[in-house]
């Protein structure tokens, strides 16, 4: 930190040559300002971002790039180690196929390209030490709706000509210990039951946990709609209250919406509870049409699984 200007000048960079609509700088999210209406943001599949970072020896919550629709091409301006994890977007280095999860070196002038998703939805790209840019409220997470985060601090997605600068000159390269599986056509999502669940009728609760749901095409970083049996809640109007990550809210049409990282901070529809963080990460990789089963879990079970995931990166 003594000479930031020099370290910045010598740090390796990737230059954006082409980009799709949804290549976003994301980290673990922006915390401490939800009472001011500022949403959480952050990588939807925080586990894959964590693995991409782990492959380079970064902290699991260091900022990387979330690539949702492919179409991204980056040229190395200097020699750099990078890592990718998450969805298989048919990544290539100068046309040569790369594994969906792993680290590799880019020589100056080499081009890293991402195509359309083949398994999962979102790939994560990590740079040594994370991405060097000015955080807002402790986070680089991009929230377009709030005009916050990203390289320009104004919520912009990556643009042609942008330079991704590594926050560190060196990486501690690691091997992926196993191949993480992406949801393929179906997924089970753990739901911590609670909130207004007692106000749903018995038949609705039976259906919620025993029938299959479909991921709707109305899905983005704010929330994902499920279609399936109509759920009925006896609760009439509700006064808006704070909404946790993964909240499974049921509007009057009976079709649940799972609220994700860029959700509004308060809301007034009854909820069955909230997905566990691990289930939220999995949902971030579920394409429209994926068949979903909701599996009720206790907060204690969800916490054990979450702490186990964090321990893998120590």
């Amino acid at each position: 930190m003594a000479m930031p200007e020099i370290s910045r000048a010598t740090s390796a960079a990737l230059v954006v040559e082409a980009t799709g609509p949804l290549a976003l700088v994301e980290d673990a999210g922006r915390f401490g300002a939800r009472h001011l209406g500022v949403t959480q943001g952050g990588a939807l599949d925080w586990i894959s971002l964590g693995w991409a970072n782990w492959l380079l020896g970064n902290a699991p919550d260091a900022a990387g790039i979330e690539i949702a629709m492919g179409g991204l091409k980056l040229q190395a301006a200097s020699r750099m180690s990078v890592a990718i994890a998450g969805a298989d977007l048919g990544a290539t280095r100068d046309g040569e196929a790369l594994p969906a999860n792993g680290s590799f070196v880019l020589e100056p002038g080499q081009v890293l390209a991402f195509d359309q998703p083949r398994a999962g939805l979102r790939a994560y790209l990590a740079l040594p030490g994370g991405i060097d840019a000015e955080p807002f409220m402790g986070s680089l997470s991009t929230v377009a709706r709030e005009q916050l985060g990203g390289l320009d601090g104004r919520g912009s997605a990556l643009r042609v000509g942008d330079r991704l600068i590594a926050a560190s000159d060196s990486a501690e390269i690691r091997e992926m210990p196993f191949a993480p599986a992406m949801p393929q056509g179906e997924a089970t999502l753990e739901l911590v039951t609670g909130a207004q669940i007692a106000h749903f009728d018995g038949a609705s609760l039976f259906a919620a946990f025993n029938q299959a749901w479909q991921v709707d095409s109305r899905a983005d970083r704010m929330g994902v709609r499920l279609t399936g049996p109509a759920l009925r809640c006896q609760l009439g109007g509700m006064i808006s209250e704070g909404i946790p990550l993964g909240a499974v809210q049921v509007p009057p049409d009976g079709q649940p919406i799972i609220l994700l990282n860029d959700r509004q901070t308060i809301g007034g529809y009854p909820r069955l509870g909230a997905l566990s963080p691990i289930a939220c990460a999995r949902l971030g990789q579920c394409a429209p049409g994926t068949s979903i089963r909701l599996s009720p879990v206790s907060p204690q079970q969800a916490r054990r699984a979450y702490l186990h995931q964090l321990a893998l990166w120590r």
């Binding site: 915390f31 401490g32 300002a33 939800r34 009472h35 959480q40 006064i239 808006s240 209250e241 704070g242 909404i243 946790p244 901070t265 308060i266 907060p299 204690q300 916490r303 979450y306 702490l307 964090l310």
Partner: peptide
């Protein structure tokens, strides 16, 4: 405490589960 969201009649308490049990 990670976030605390007051609203009309309630407060949402979001805490760090790595350091605190339910």
């Amino acid at each position: 405490l990670i976030d605390l969201v007051p609203s009309y009649t309630t407060l949402l308490v979001h805490y760090d589960v790595a350091r605190l049990s339910l």
